[in-house]
Deep mutational scan, measured.
Amino acid sequence: ELIWEQYTVTLQKDSKRGFGIAVSGGRDNPHFENGETSIVISDVLPGGPADGLLQENDRVVMVNGTPMEDVLHSFAVQQLRKSGKVAAIVVKRPRK
C-alpha cells in the first residue's frame, strides 16, 4: 500500500527557464494507464529552479494555495504562469 508524503517547495522563477518544470495530467488529460486525473510533474530541467526539489511523477496538490485536484491541465499551467517570481508548490510522492 502506498504511503504518500507531502512536500512544500518554493521555486524562484528563472528569467530564461521559468520554474524548470513541465506538468501533465489534469481532468481533461487522464493518465493513460490508470485514469488518474492528478496534475503530475512530467519533467524537471537539470540545473533549473526545481532541480533537486521536485521529482518526475510528483503529484501537484497545490500551487500558491490553489488546490490542483480535479482541475484542467490548462488551469494548472495558468496558475504556474501567473505566480510571478516565486511559486509555492505542494506535491506528494510515495514514501520509498
Rank of each mutant, 00 (worst) to 15 (best):
V9Y: 09
G35D: 10
K92I: 05
V40F: 07
Q79W: 05
N57D: 13
G52L: 03
R81F: 12
D58S: 01
T37G: 12
F32G: 08
I41K: 03
M62N: 10
L11R: 01
Q78C: 13
N64T: 01
V60K: 00
A22I: 13
E5N: 06
D51C: 11
K85F: 09
P30H: 04
V71L: 03
I21T: 00
V40T: 13
P46T: 15
S74T: 12
P49Q: 03
P67E: 11
G52V: 02
N29Q: 14
V91D: 02
L80K: 00
A50M: 00
M68R: 00
I41H: 03
S74P: 05
L11W: 00
P94Y: 13
E5S: 07
H31W: 06
D14E: 06
V77L: 14
V61T: 08
K92E: 15
I41M: 00
N29S: 14
P67Q: 15
E5A: 10
H31P: 14
G18K: 08
A87T: 12
Q78F: 09
M62S: 14
G25L: 02
G52T: 06
L11G: 02
V71A: 11
V23S: 02
P49L: 04
A76S: 04
D51W: 06
E56Q: 15
V63N: 01
Q79V: 14
K16Q: 06
M62I: 06
K85W: 07
T10E: 07
E33G: 07
V63R: 00
S42D: 15
V40E: 03
G65S: 07
R93K: 05
L53V: 10
E33P: 13
I21A: 02
V90G: 05
P46C: 08
V90M: 10
D51A: 13
V9K: 03
R59T: 06
E69A: 13
G52N: 08
E33L: 10
Q55I: 10
E69C: 11
V77C: 13
G35M: 10
I21Q: 02
R59Q: 12
M62C: 10
Q12V: 14
V71K: 06
N64H: 01
R27H: 07
L80M: 09
R27M: 09
G47S: 07
S24M: 09
S38M: 04
F75W: 09
G48M: 02
E36L: 08
E69R: 11
P30I: 04
S24W: 11
I39N: 00
T66D: 05
G52M: 05
V61G: 02
G48Y: 02
G47P: 02
D58C: 03
V63G: 00
D14R: 05
Y7H: 11
K96F: 09
D51V: 10
V91A: 05
N34F: 04
S42V: 11
S15A: 12
V40L: 10
K92L: 06
V86Q: 11
E33S: 12
T37N: 15
G84A: 13
G48K: 14
R17Q: 15
N29R: 11
V9A: 06
D43K: 11
I21F: 12
L80I: 14
D51G: 05
V71F: 00
F75Q: 13
Q78R: 12
V86H: 12
G18I: 06
H73R: 10
P94M: 11
N34I: 06
D58M: 02
R17L: 15
P49M: 06
D58A: 01
K13E: 09
F32E: 14
D43R: 13
M68P: 00
N64R: 02
I39H: 03
H31S: 07
K82A: 08
P49Y: 01
R27Q: 13
L45I: 09
G65Q: 14
E33I: 09
T66C: 08
L11S: 01
I41V: 14
G35T: 07
I41Q: 03
G84R: 13
V60W: 00
P30A: 05
F19L: 13
K82I: 11
L72M: 14
N64A: 03
D51L: 04
V23F: 15
G47R: 05
E36K: 03
D51I: 05
Q12C: 10
P30F: 10
K85P: 11
E56R: 12
Q6N: 15
A50Y: 00
K16D: 10
L54P: 02
S74C: 12
L53M: 10
D28K: 04
F75V: 09
K96A: 09
S24T: 09
S24K: 12
V91E: 02
G35F: 05
L80H: 02
L11N: 00
S83D: 05
N34Q: 04
K96N: 13
H31L: 11
G84Q: 11
P46L: 11
S24G: 15
V86D: 14
A76R: 01
S42K: 08
V77T: 09
G18N: 12
V91Q: 02
V77G: 04
G65L: 05
I21S: 00
R93P: 01
N57I: 02
P46A: 14
Q79G: 06
P67D: 11
G25Y: 02
V44Y: 00
Q6H: 10
A50Q: 00
A88L: 12
V23C: 08
V77W: 08
T10S: 12
R93Q: 01
S24A: 15
I21K: 04
A88M: 08
V44Q: 00
V63F: 12
A76Q: 00
Q6Y: 08
D51E: 15
A50K: 01
H73S: 12
I41N: 03
E33Y: 06
L45T: 15
K92N: 10
V90P: 00
V44C: 05
D43P: 01
L80C: 02
L72T: 14
P49S: 05
S42Q: 11
T66G: 03
Q55A: 15
D14M: 03
A22F: 14
S83L: 08
D43H: 08
D28Y: 03
W4Q: 05
K92M: 07
S38R: 07
V91F: 07
K82T: 09
A88D: 08
G84C: 13
E69S: 11
A87Y: 02
L2A: 12
D70A: 11
M68E: 00
S42C: 14
S24E: 05
H73M: 13
R95L: 10
R17M: 15
V61E: 11
I3Q: 03
H31R: 11
N57V: 02
S83P: 09
H73E: 13
V86T: 15
G26S: 03
V63K: 00
E1F: 14
M62A: 11
D58W: 04
I39T: 02
I3A: 08
T66A: 08
V91I: 10
I39D: 03
G20N: 02
V23I: 11
V40C: 05
R93G: 03
V77H: 07
R81Y: 15
T10A: 10
T8F: 05
Q55H: 09
R59V: 11
E1V: 05
A88Q: 11
G25K: 01
S24Q: 15
E36Y: 02
H73D: 06
V61D: 04
T8I: 07
V63Y: 03
N34E: 14
M68V: 06
H31K: 07
A87N: 02
S83G: 10
S74Q: 11
P30C: 05
G25P: 00
E36M: 08
K13N: 06
V40Q: 11
T37D: 04
Q79Y: 08
D58G: 01
T8N: 03
Y7W: 08
E56I: 07
G52K: 06
V9I: 12
L45H: 08
R17K: 13
N64C: 03
I89R: 01
G48E: 02
K82R: 12
K16L: 10
S24N: 13
L80N: 02
P94G: 12
F19H: 04
T37A: 11
L80F: 10
W4E: 07
G47K: 08
M68Y: 06
I89S: 01
G47L: 08
G26K: 01
T8R: 08
G48R: 00
F19G: 02
L72A: 12
L72W: 08
A76Y: 04
I89D: 01
N29G: 15
D58T: 00
Q79I: 09
